[in-house]
Design a protein around this nucleic acid. Structure first.
Lengths: 340, 340
DNA sequence: CTGTTAGCGCTTTCAA
DNA sequence: TTGAAAGCGCTAACAG
């Protein structure tokens, strides 16, 4: 299948017996042009259904008005929300967006960056893959002076702006909530230890324990690989502990959902036998039985702030110096934890 | 913030004292080139961290190797899955993807098409907005011979390929399941009547009724505007009907979830008082209490098939004649309907 | 095997 | 107020 022909300025020019530059000027509403010719041209352009070739234009002005976005996976509701916010606010300012997923691999993350850079995007918004533990590709971007920022899954050693949630604060709130509602032995089920959010949420967890004068018990921290199998293995380990926790804070909702899935048929009652809380507020967490106490992260808002800051930098409305934007989270107490 | 300089072929050429065309040839591994020069060039390109300018290349060869995708909303798990399938299989064949959302409006759908066409995408994959009831913009694409196809939310009057689910079959299966498990009065809660899927799923519903010798009762068809408020209004109407249905088939899962939400505090037991089934298999449907019987639609698979067919057409491996690809759905009986 | 040349569609000086 | 010409970075005849 071959693509049909697209009308060009040259063709309009020939039809009207004027030069291409005149067409160009008319179409961008240049003031130094006779109103009549301008009118004739604009009408003819509409009649011929002219649509500018953005490729040519971008090549000429060396700006594409396009931003690149890289997320670990698009099917996650949280990242989909971020993308939605990014797109809406990019469009509002006349920018398009190219989205790529890394599928949580470093290799694809690098490949995506290459593609987007080759496509001459004006800037990049990146959320790192779970696997990313080397940062050469980002430092390379930095050295080549390609504007970018990191959001949600960030690294603190790259000197660029980043947008994150107050993970520590959220984790502190939810742990405190568990303690306030009567839990004495609160467990933290974490993701892989080198993940930024694993660390931050653990800090919040420890902070709350400290505030309640509780000495952290290494028995009460579990590490999941974040697969369903891994989560379910941990569910069993907890169920068969000689001394079970009476409250469990999971780093992300899906862990909590998997725990519930294993515990329900075993007759473990939530929140009476164990209280349970998550983080992220997945759509499923609201409808599960009992509804899961969790921490809401406004993804759309994060996308909006991230893209707005990057565009402000690109357009000189914000300083090039890296800043850190921190969004607050909201505790959503539901029935999987006891009432105050 | 200004973007740093990108290395061009010209610069490599100057450094090596050869012509630009030689660089071009070396970098695309042309056979008619001395191995030594080729090697020198490739090495130098790597050393200088050269990355091709896709814009210039695309302008020259008048092909971008980029596809445009338009979906109603990216935060829907189903469409996110489609996008994921499209991206994976487009990338496999060396294509990039630009994604846009119409936010369910005709206006944005048109704007997205304009942008993508201006960006010179090689083809488009479109899923129509809920609002789209005029098709000039699509016919225009067709007349301008810009390759595109429709998926999931399609219209049958546009002479292009389309990829859909066997909606009728899925609806037939689920209605039959309700009837087989003992329901006598099965209701269909539809979306707006001009939606393709509203019609198709109603046909399946009616087909199953007919097979069981049941005369359709107009009382037993409700139309929702698909907002949560609309769904909840219908939930109340049903609850207060003089003669309630004993089984309800909802056009999409979210309707069923809203019905449950309203009914649960009213003490209506599912499936004993009323059996309930949906369509789409949203993630939440599996974890709600009771788990919702529904029809699974493999979105990833749909994306994969759609993009593969379009690329086959683009590259001449498939005929340009429009075809209709129909994917089968799978009934997932769960506890919201009675067991067989 | 390699260089010269033209041109993709557009914008933008510089002249007229 | 308009046109001519150069050039963005790249590819592809056509020469040599």
């Amino acid at each position: 299948m071959k693509k049909g022909h697209q009308v060009t300025m040259k063709e309009i020019a020939k039809k009207l017996g004027v030069s291409v530059s005149t067409i160009s000027r008319a179409l961008k509403d240049s003031p130094e042009l006779h109103p009549d010719t301008k009118k004739r041209i604009v009408e003819m352009a509409k009649e011929m259904n002219y649509q500018p070739n953005l490729l040519a234009q971008s090549l000429r002005i060396s700006r594409t008005n396009t931003l690149g976005v890289i997320v670990p996976e698009i099917t996650s509701h949280f990242f989909a929300s971020c993308i939605s916010g990014i797109q809406d606010y990019a469009n509002k300012r006349g920018y398009n967006v190219m989205i790529c997923q890394s599928n949580e691999t470093l290799e694809l993350e690098k490949a995506n960056i290459r593609t987007l850079v080759s496509s001459q995007v004006d800037g990049l918004l990146i959320s790192l893959s779970r696997e990313t533990n080397k940062y050469d590709h980002l430092l390379d971007l930095y050295n080549r002076e390609i504007p970018f920022l990191l959001f949600d899954r960030v690294n603190e050693d790259i000197p660029v702006s980043r947008v994150t949630f107050n993970d520590e604060g959220g984790a502190y709130q939810v742990t405190k909530h568990l303690l306030e509602t009567g839990c004495k032995r609160v467990m933290y089920v974490s993701g892989p230890e080198d993940l930024y959010i694993s660390k931050k949420r653990k800090e919040g967890y420890l902070h709350a324990l400290a505030e309640f004068g509780i000495t952290p018990d290494p028995e009460l921290v579990k590490i999941s690989d974040l697969t369903s199998e891994g989560n379910m293995k941990i569910a069993n380990e907890i169920a068969f502990m000689k001394q079970r926790p009476d409250g469990v804070f999971c780093m992300i909702d899906p862990i909590a959902l998997d725990l519930m899935f294993v515990w329900k048929p075993m007759g473990i009652k939530i929140p009476d036998d164990m209280a349970l809380a998550g983080f992220t507020n997945n759509p499923a967490s609201a409808v599960i039985e009992p509804p899961l106490t969790t921490v809401a992260q406004p993804g759309y808002e994060m996308g909006k702030l991230a893209v707005t800051h990057l565009l402000d930098q690109l357009e000189g409305q914000a300083s090039d110096d890296p800043i850190s934007i921190v969004l607050e989270t909201t505790l959503l107490p539901r029935q999987s934890t006891k009432a105050l």
